[in-house]
Simulated assay, not measured.
Amino acid sequence: MKPEEGSAPVTMLAQRCFEAAMLAEVYAVLVERCGKETALGVIEETVERAALEAGKRFAAKAPDGPSLTHFAAVTDMWRAGGALTIENVRREPDRLSFDVTRCRYAERYREMGLPEELVTRISCLRDGAFVAGYCDKLRLTRPGTIASGADRCPFTFIWEKR
């Protein structure tokens, strides 16, 4: 969503909340028509496709092509408006890691009354697909998430030299 001329930009958190509200409605209809398992599959595929395309669009903005240095700038977008609290940032030539210690995305989705099974799917599921869309040299490991009950989300991005 692009803001109108002269208006304030929409934060990623606000954008994701708009999307989450719509996905929750679609999910409710799909559960009624197809059952929970099929409905979750459709939501997962939709979120992954959107995130993959977003990763491609972000990569296209890299002045010298995708790189770990360019990718690291995404953390500023992710935490805009206080959406994420990020600590313990560590940068190495081929690795970026950090801990998310507060996730307003998950908090807002729960405040909105989203079914619990959608909270991680609408938010956390995006990350791996975004990375895949950005570049096939980039890998993500994240053994737990706040949305799924962990006390933090430990992200590690590794740039593989091929």
Rank of each mutant, 00 (worst) to 15 (best):
P3C: 09
E4A: 14
E5R: 14
E5K: 04
G6S: 11
A8M: 13
A8R: 15
P9H: 03
L13A: 13
L13V: 10
A14W: 04
A14N: 09
R16S: 11
R16A: 09
R16E: 12
F18L: 13
F18A: 10
E19Y: 15
E19D: 12
A21L: 14
E25G: 12
V26Q: 13
V26A: 13
A28Q: 11
A28G: 00
L30H: 09
L30F: 07
E32M: 08
R33K: 15
R33E: 15
K36S: 07
T38L: 05
T38Y: 02
T38S: 08
T38P: 03
T38R: 07
A39V: 03
A39Y: 06
L40F: 05
L40T: 06
G41M: 05
V42G: 00
V42M: 09
I43G: 00
E45G: 10
T46A: 10
T46R: 03
E48K: 11
A51T: 06
L52N: 08
E53M: 10
G55K: 01
G55L: 05
R57M: 13
F58M: 13
F58Q: 08
A59S: 15
K61D: 13
G65M: 04
S67V: 09
S67H: 07
L68D: 03
A72C: 02
V74Q: 07
V74D: 05
T75Q: 06
T75W: 05
A80W: 05
G81I: 13
G82D: 15
L84A: 03
I86P: 04
I86E: 09
V89E: 15
R91T: 12
D94C: 06
D94R: 12
R95V: 08
L96F: 06
S97Y: 09
S97L: 03
S97R: 12
F98S: 02
F98I: 02
V100G: 01
T101H: 03
R102H: 09
C103L: 08
R104K: 11
R104G: 04
A106F: 00
E107I: 03
Y109G: 00
R110C: 04
E117T: 08
L118A: 04
V119E: 05
V119P: 01
V119C: 01
T120R: 09
T120S: 10
R121L: 14
R121H: 07
I122Y: 00
I122P: 01
C124R: 00
A132F: 01
A132W: 00
A132C: 07
A132E: 12
G133D: 05
Y134W: 07
L140E: 09
L140P: 03
T141E: 15
P143Y: 03
G144L: 04
I146G: 03
A147R: 02
S148V: 04
S148I: 02
R152D: 06
F155V: 02
I158T: 15
K161V: 10
R162Y: 07
R162S: 14
